[in-house]
Every structure is written in C-alpha cells, then in structure tokens.
Amino acid sequence: QTQEFDNEEEARKAEKELRKENRRVTVTQENGRWRVTWD
C-alpha cells in the first residue's frame, strides 16, 4: 500500500505508526513529494 505526503514530517509520522504495527515500511522522496509504502 502507498500513501503520499507533502512533507517529510507527515511521512515520518505515518512511518512511525506503521512500524508500531510491525509492518515493513519504505519512505521515498520523489518530485518533492514523500511516499510511504508498506506491506
């Protein structure tokens, strides 16, 4: 699953929550947008 964010702060917040659920999370930056991908 993927979700896009406008800034790193929001993306990192989402990453932190997903990691609490023991998910594999990848955060990438593309064209000024932050993308959080998880399984």
Rank of each mutant, 00 (worst) to 15 (best):
E8K: 03
Q3I: 14
Q29S: 10
F5H: 02
E8H: 03
E8V: 04
W34R: 00
R12F: 05
K16A: 14
E10S: 09
L18P: 01
N7M: 04
K16L: 12
K16Q: 13
R35G: 02
V25K: 00
E30Y: 07
E9F: 10
R35K: 15
E4W: 15
V36G: 00
V27G: 00
D39P: 07
E15R: 02
N7W: 04
K13R: 12
A14T: 08
G32E: 04
V36P: 05
R24I: 14
E17A: 13
E30G: 04
R24N: 15
T2G: 06
R35F: 15
V27H: 01
E17D: 09
E21Y: 09
E15G: 04
R12T: 04
W38Q: 06
E9D: 11
V25Y: 02
Q3H: 14
E4V: 14
R23V: 13
T28E: 07
Q3P: 02
K20G: 11
E30V: 14
F5L: 01
R33N: 07
D6F: 07
R12E: 03
E8W: 05
K16P: 01
R19Y: 06
A14Y: 15
D6S: 07
A14L: 15
V25W: 01
G32F: 02
A11T: 01
R23Q: 10
R12C: 06
V25T: 05
R19D: 04
D6P: 06
T26R: 09
N31G: 10
T2F: 15
E17N: 09
Q1V: 13
E17Y: 05
K20M: 12
D6T: 07
V36L: 06
Q3C: 11
D6R: 05
T2P: 03
N7A: 04
Q1K: 11
T28P: 00
G32Y: 02
T26G: 03
K16R: 13
W34I: 01
E21Q: 14
K13M: 12
N7T: 15
T37H: 14
R33L: 08
L18K: 05
V25G: 03
E15A: 15
V36H: 01
T28G: 03
N7Q: 05
R23C: 13
G32H: 04
R24F: 14
L18A: 08
N22S: 07
K13I: 11
N7R: 05
E10Q: 10
R19F: 07
N31S: 09
V27C: 07
T37Y: 12
V36W: 01
E10T: 05
Q3R: 13
F5W: 03
L18T: 02
V25R: 00
N22L: 05
N31K: 08
W38V: 15
N31P: 02
R35V: 15
Q29R: 09
K20A: 15
V27D: 00
N31E: 10
R33G: 04
R35H: 11
T28D: 04
R35M: 11
N22P: 03
A11H: 00
D6A: 09
E4S: 10
E17V: 09
K20L: 13
L18S: 03
E15P: 00
R33V: 11
R33Q: 08
Q1A: 11
V36I: 10
A11F: 02
E15L: 05
Q1H: 14
A11N: 00
K20Y: 07
E9T: 08
F5E: 01
R12G: 03
N22W: 12
R23A: 13
N31L: 06
A14K: 15
T37W: 13
R23G: 08
F5Q: 00
D39K: 04
W38D: 11
R19H: 10
V27S: 02
E21R: 10
K13L: 13
R23P: 09
A14N: 03
A14G: 02
T26M: 09
E4M: 15
T37F: 11
D6Y: 04
T28W: 11
W38S: 14
L18W: 06
E17M: 11
A11G: 01
E4Y: 15
R33E: 03
T37G: 05
E30N: 06
E17C: 07
